[in-house]
Computed example of a mutant assay.
Amino acid sequence: MSFIDGLTKESQIADIGCGTGGQTMVLGKQAPGSITGIDLFPRFIELFNQNALEAGLTERVKGLVGTMENLPFEEEELDLIWSEGAIYNIGFKRGLEEWRKFIKPGGYIAVTEAVWFTEKQPEEISTFWQAYPEIDTIPVKVTQMQAAGYLPVAAFILPKDCWTDHFFKPQVTAQELFLKKYRGNSTAEDLIAYLKHEAVLYDKYGDFYGYTFFIGKKI
C-alpha cells in the first residue's frame, strides 16, 4: 500500500475476482474507503460477505456477484482497482485497457500476474505454460501497462511462499476429498494429476517464473 497514495475514507475501491475475500479483508484493514468485491461465483460471494461480517468490516466491505467483462461501476468512479491472481481470466492487457475507464484520473490499479523472470526458460516449463500464452517477462508487462494509459509505479516479485504455502499446500487436502467424491471419474483424476504436476514443476523451476505485483497510476 505504500505505493498508493491519496486514499481517504471517501475512496471507492474494487477487488476484481475477489474469491472468498481473504486478501480483501487484509486490504480493508489497511486501506480507508469502501471496498466492493466482484466474483462470478455466488457461493464465493456468500462466503466473502460472511468473512466481512466476522472481520467487522461490513460497513465498508461488501461482495457482489458479477463478471470482469461487465463491471457494475460508473466511469471514473473508482480510486483503486485491486486484483490478485485473477486478471488472467480476462487477460492482463485486456483487463488494464477495459478497466481503465472505471478509474478516476490519478487513481490506481494494482494487479498480480504470472511472469517469466528470465528471457529463456527450460523447455519443459515453457511447454507447460503454453496454456497461458500471455505469460511474459516483467519489462513486457510494464510496457503493456504504460501503453494502456498508466504511469508504472511499481513492479515487485512476490515471495515463493505466496504460491507454495497459499496455493499448492491448501490444495492437497481438497484434492484428496475431490478424488474421494468423484472416485473412478477419469475427468476428475486427470484434473488432479494436472494440478499435482503443476506443483512438481514449480518446485523444480520456481526460479524461472512466478507472480509479480504491478501497480499503475491512471494518467
Results as ranks from 00 to 15, higher is better:
99 W>S: 15
99 W>Q: 12
99 W>P: 01
99 W>Y: 15
100 R>W: 12
100 R>S: 14
100 R>N: 07
100 R>T: 07
100 R>F: 07
100 R>V: 10
101 K>D: 03
101 K>S: 02
101 K>M: 10
102 F>G: 09
102 F>A: 09
102 F>L: 08
103 I>M: 05
103 I>V: 10
103 I>Q: 10
103 I>G: 03
104 K>G: 04
104 K>T: 01
104 K>A: 03
105 P>Y: 09
105 P>S: 13
106 G>D: 03
106 G>H: 09
106 G>T: 03
107 G>D: 06
107 G>I: 08
107 G>K: 08
107 G>E: 09
108 Y>L: 03
108 Y>R: 02
109 I>C: 04
109 I>H: 02
109 I>T: 06
110 A>Q: 07
110 A>Y: 02
110 A>I: 01
111 V>E: 03
111 V>T: 03
111 V>N: 06
111 V>I: 11
111 V>S: 06
112 T>L: 00
112 T>M: 00
113 E>I: 03
113 E>Y: 01
113 E>K: 01
114 A>K: 06
114 A>F: 05
114 A>C: 07
114 A>R: 03
114 A>G: 07
114 A>L: 09
114 A>N: 04
115 V>I: 00
115 V>Q: 00
115 V>A: 04
115 V>W: 00
116 W>L: 04
116 W>H: 04
116 W>E: 02
116 W>T: 05
116 W>F: 07
116 W>A: 02
116 W>Y: 12
116 W>P: 05
117 F>Q: 01
117 F>W: 02
118 T>Q: 09
118 T>E: 08
118 T>Y: 05
118 T>R: 10
118 T>V: 01
118 T>H: 12
119 E>F: 05
119 E>H: 06
119 E>Q: 13
119 E>Y: 06
119 E>P: 06
120 K>P: 03
120 K>A: 09
120 K>R: 07
120 K>N: 10
120 K>C: 03
121 Q>L: 11
121 Q>V: 15
121 Q>H: 10
121 Q>T: 08
121 Q>S: 04
121 Q>W: 11
122 P>I: 12
122 P>D: 10
122 P>K: 10
122 P>H: 11
122 P>W: 13
123 E>G: 04
123 E>Y: 09
123 E>K: 12
124 E>W: 11
124 E>M: 11
124 E>C: 04
124 E>F: 07
125 I>P: 11
125 I>M: 12
125 I>G: 07
125 I>D: 13
126 S>A: 14
126 S>F: 01
126 S>Q: 14
127 T>A: 14
127 T>P: 05
127 T>H: 13
127 T>I: 13
127 T>K: 15
127 T>W: 07
127 T>E: 13
127 T>N: 13
128 F>V: 10
128 F>L: 13
129 W>Q: 12
129 W>F: 15
129 W>L: 00
129 W>A: 12
129 W>E: 05
129 W>M: 11
130 Q>D: 15
130 Q>W: 09
130 Q>T: 13
131 A>V: 15
131 A>D: 11
131 A>F: 14
131 A>S: 14
132 Y>I: 15
132 Y>K: 14
132 Y>C: 14
132 Y>V: 15
133 P>F: 12
133 P>N: 05
133 P>T: 09
134 E>S: 14
134 E>L: 04
134 E>W: 14
135 I>H: 09
135 I>T: 12
135 I>Q: 08
